[in-house]
């Protein structure tokens, strides 16, 4: 199953340790992760379900291309990293 890791900076606000969840797209994987950590959803995605302006998501080291629908594919053993983008720093 894909593995999701949230930036350590988010842990200060919401406990969301790395997790392994099912899913074949970023949307499916994140939905599964947010089922475990519901409060974390609003810290990563906005009310449209899109990636917040100054957040960035990587799948196996590549920044995702679809920040709105989150349709990028996640391999069976893919690593999803949820990070802060330097743009907001």
């Amino acid at each position: 199953m894909p593995r999701v890791t949230f930036t350590r900076n988010l842990q200060r606000h919401v406990a969301c340790p790395p997790c392994e969840v099912a899913g074949g797209t970023v949307r499916e994987v994140l939905d599964a992760a947010f089922a475990l950590y519901p409060v974390a959803r609003g810290y990563v995605l906005d009310e449209r379900g899109e990636v917040r302006t100054h957040m960035i998501l990587f799948v196996d080291g590549q920044a995702i291309s679809d920040r709105r629908a989150l349709s990028d594919t996640v391999p069976e053993h893919g690593e999803v990293f949820v990070m802060q983008a330097l743009s907001g720093g």
């Binding site: 900076n9 988010l10 609003g42 957040m55």
Partner: peptide
């Protein structure tokens, strides 16, 4: 306003001793 993580609201029932996160206003689609 957490910047990267967005805007949040907190509520306290004990004059600031403890806080809990509550919902924020969400814009319609």
């Amino acid at each position: 306003d957490h910047g990267h993580f967005g805007v949040k609201l907190q509520r306290s029932d004990d004059q600031g001793a403890t806080w809990e996160e509550i919902a924020v206003p969400e814009y319609p689609a």
